[in-house]
Design a protein around this nucleic acid. Structure first.
Ligand code: MN
Ligand code: MN
Ligand code: MN
Ligand code: MN
Lengths: 217, 217
DNA sequence: TTTATTGTTTAGACAAATCTAAAAATTTAT
DNA sequence: ATAAATTTTTAGATTTGTCTAAACAATAAA
């Protein structure tokens, strides 16, 4: 079994390796809110346990074992988020910190029963896919809203930024999961997007558009 | 805020002080599965934080602050147990270890929403009372089954022993919460009890009878 | 009322996770 | 290619919770 802290490291290495592989020490330090020296220590320990492959000065990659462990934590995190939103009426910007703790509860029975209780959800409240118990993700066909052109239509199915500030902003604009949108125009000079959501005309910055995920249809 | 470990100490001191006050070092050591020396160290720390009053060689008592903290952990523990049994179909002998972890999740919003979601339960799956958010317990009128005499009737409303072995044993005998029972006879020579539960005649040892709580009616 | 026995505390050590400061390696710039 | 800047690692220290072994107190027995 891994400690709470080791699990957090594994999960963050997992997420970072979607962006760059191998994952660099400083990248981990920044995300985990700690110092590079501490990261090096922990990396050595995870390497001892064969959860990561580590090459000095080069960075880390997850081993198969490490990856499976990380995915399981992601699974738990996202299932708990669904629980909080669907059953306890949390808002989508309120769930992250609590799920950050709940993801470490050790009980396979609990996870499987929770999954069943929630009716086997495939995505969490931010549109992120929930892996099954074997670690397999259902592939979801997303495209960033910022990649669309005028006339394109689709449904908001996810976000790639989870800060409370961002989520509350979308809430205010009425741009929540499941909403259908249509692009009116992409402004040339700043890349901001004019769109229609529920008969409502709205303008969002390119920065915001980059973090909204759309299923075209 | 207290650490996970400090919370476990406070909760155990709380439970033990129902039996003896002040609570002795060795009693804590036994319950928390650690050595007396470690308990002394922790007690000093809790005393520093004014969560317990400590007199060397005498033992500890909880301060008002410590007691409220402990009751809040008990509240969370029992609410989670209800959740596991009522919503996730855990058996009453399967919930303890998971609740032991879940009780440490830090979020008042979570606890209050969970309470509401569970419809404000007053007792947990073992018949133990759940304090409200201010730390008040609804007084429940229990009597040990071992105190009853032949002819007495009542309902099983709690147990005072939570081991999986004991709970499974009761399950097998059909002596679960809510079952109505009637005492046929209390055997003189060993104190064992012959009783009727759902038309079924059963004999239980005095030891078992001492841990079953009855509401007479 | 000395002597055992038991219970509790202290002293000193250790593992886990963290830090600061300094050294070493790598990358970038000149 | 050499120097400068950046990144990463090491060395040594700190905090938290634990341990063993030894000292000390309180209680029970002789
Ligand atoms: Mn976490
Ligand atoms: Mn999420
Ligand atoms: Mn606990
Ligand atoms: Mn219980």
């Amino acid at each position: 079994m891994q400690s709470y802290t080791e699990e957090n490291y594994l999960k963050i290495i997992y997420h970072l390796s979607e962006i760059s592989n191998p994952v660099l020490t400083n990248a981990i330090a920044e995300r985990i809110q700690t110092k590079a020296a501490s990261v090096t220590d922990m990396i050595k320990k995870l390497s001892e346990k064969e959860l990561v492959n580590y090459v000095k000065y080069q960075g880390v990659t997850l081993t198969e074992k490490g990856k499976l462990t990380a995915i399981n934590i992601v699974r738990k995190h996202r299932l708990w988020e669904v629980f909080l939103v669907d059953k306890l009426n949390f808002k989508w910007d309120e769930v992250h910190d609590v799920a950050e703790e709940l993801e470490h509860i050790q009980s396979n029975l609990l996870v499987e029963r929770l999954d069943e209780f929630l009716d086997f959800p495939r995505v969490d409240p931010h549109g992120d896919p929930i892996p099954d118990k074997y670690g397999n993700f259902a592939e979801l066909a997303f495209v960033k809203l910022s990649k669309l052109n005028s006339g394109d239509k689709g449904t908001i199915t996810g976000v790639s930024e989870h800060s409370s500030a961002f989520l509350k902003h979308l809430e205010k604009l009425g741009l929540t999961l499941g909403k259908r949108i249509e692009i009116i125009e992409v402004l040339e000079f700043d890349g901001s997007v004019e769109l229609l959501a529920e008969q409502q005309k709205t303008n969002i910055s390119r920065e915001v558009a980059k973090h909204i995920l759309i299923t075209k249809n």
